[in-house]
C-alpha cells in the first residue's frame, strides 16, 4: 500500500488521531462556516453495494457541507458489479474520477481490497459483519459530547454482543482510555466472542462483568449502548421468546438509572427501544446520528490532508 491514508479498521487510528478527529469535529460544530468551502472542487465517491440510509446520506451530507460534491451508486445492481467487475478494478476506475471513496459492501474485506488498489483514500463504510469504523468514531464523538471525556466511566453494552460489530469496535476503542470498565448485558447465547474477551478485555486488564439482567446493571452505568436482539440469532425459539423483552428499553427500566446516563444505539432500531424513551433527555441516539456527520467531515478532511 502506498502513502495514501485509508480508514479500514478503527484499530489503525491512534488515540491521538482519534482525539484530533474529535477536536476537529467539535470545531466544525462551533464554526461551520469556516469549513464550508474546505473541499471545494473535491469529489467523494460513495460506492454502496448494499442499501444504507444513514451511513450513505451521512457521508454525502458531510462532503456537501465541506463544499465538495458527491458521485456514486447506492446498490450493486446499478454498478458495474452487476456485470461482474471486481472490487479491485472498480477502485482503480473510481480513482480516475473522485478524490476519496466511501465503500459499503456485504462481503468482509472488500474495502481493504479497494484500498490496496485505489490511488485515493478509501473509507470503510461497513463490510458485512466485520468493520464499521466510522460508526465507532460516531459513538466516540457522542460519548465525548455527552460526557466531556472518554475515560473514567462505566460502559454498559446490551443486547446482541456476539454478532454486533459495533459493540466489538466500541469495546476495543474505549479500552484504550483510562478508567473505563464494562458491563456486558446479554443472554448467555449472545455473549461477546472469546477474542473480544481474551484479546481486548483480559489482555489489557480492563475490568468487566457479564450479566443477563439489564435492570441489575442499570444503576452503575454512565453509558448504555443498546443493540438489537435478533430472532434469527437464536437456535431455540423458546429462548428468544423468553429473552426478547428483557432487552427492550422502556421508561420504567430507567427508574434506577443515573440522571447522567447516556443511551446510545447505532440504529436502526426495531423495537428494542420504546418510542416513549425518545423524550427522555438521556436518549442520545438521534444526536448520535448528527454526530456521525460531523465526525465524517473531520475524517474526510484528515484523509484528504485538508487543513
Amino acid at each position: 500500500m502506498s502513502d495514501i491514508r485509508h480508514l479500514i479498521d478503527i484499530s489503525t487510528l491512534t488515540v491521538e488521531e482519534i482525539d484530533a478527529l474529535i477536536k476537529t469535529a467539535l470545531d466544525i460544530i462551533e464554526n461551520p462556516a469556516k469549513y464550508s468551502e474546505k473541499c471545494r472542487g473535491k469529489k467523494l465517491a460513495t460506492l454502496f453495494y448494499e442499501p444504507s440510509t444513514r451511513t450513505r446520506l451521512s457521508f454525502e451530507s458531510a462532503m456537501l457541507e465541506l463544499g465538495g460534491s458527491v458521485i456514486g451508486f447506492s446498490e450493486a445492481q446499478s454498478s458495474s458489479a452487476s456485470k461482474g467487475e471486481s472490487v479491485a478494478d472498480t477502485a482503480k476506475v473510481i480513482s480516475c474520477f473522485a478524490d476519496i471513496i466511501a465503500m459499503r459492501h456485504p462481503l468482509e474485506g472488500a474495502p481493504m481490497v479497494a484500498a490496496l488498489n485505489a490511488s485515493i483514500p478509501v473509507i470503510n463504510a461497513g463490510d458485512g459483519g466485520h468493520n464499521h469504523p466510522t460508526q465507532t468514531l460516531t459513538d466516540l464523538l457522542t460519548i465525548y459530547r455527552e460526557k466531556g471525556r472518554l475515560g473514567h466511566m462505566t460502559v454498559g453494552c446490551c443486547g446482541d454482543l456476539k454478532f454486533g460489530r459495533t459493540v466489538h469496535s466500541l469495546i476495543a476503542a474505549m479500552s484504550r482510555y483510562e478508567g473505563v470498565d464494562f458491563v456486558l448485558i446479554s443472554p448467555e447465547e449472545l455473549r461477546v466472542p472469546e477474542n473480544v474477551r481474551n484479546d481486548i478485555l483480559k489482555a489489557n486488564n480492563i475490568p468487566y462483568r457479564e450479566t443477563e439482567s439489564l435492570l441489575e446493571a442499570m444503576p452503575d452505568l454512565d453509558i448504555l449502548y443498546m443493540t438489537r436482539v435478533q430472532r434469527e440469532r437464536f437456535i431455540s425459539e423458546a429462548d428468544y421468546v423468553r429473552l426478547k423483552d428483557t432487552y427492550i428499553m422502556t421508561p420504567d427500566k430507567l427508574m434506577d438509572a443515573k440522571e447522567t446516563l447516556s443511551i446510545l444505539h447505532p440504529l436502526p432500531r426495531v423495537n428494542e427501544i420504546s418510542v416513549a424513551v425518545d423524550k427522555d433527555p438521556r436518549a442520545c441516539y438521534f444526536r448520535q446520528v448528527l454526530n456521525g456527520k460531523y465526525i465524517r467531515m473531520a475524517l474526510i478532511l484528515m484523509l484528504l490532508g485538508v487543513k
Binding site: 468482509e108 474485506g109 481490497v113
Partner: peptide, 13 residues
C-alpha cells in the same frame, strides 16, 4: 475459510 470473505467471491484475489 470464511464464507463471507471477499476472497470467496473474487477468485483471483
Amino acid at each position: 475459510k470464511n464464507p463471507r470473505c471477499i476472497t470467496q467471491v473474487e477468485q483471483e484475489l
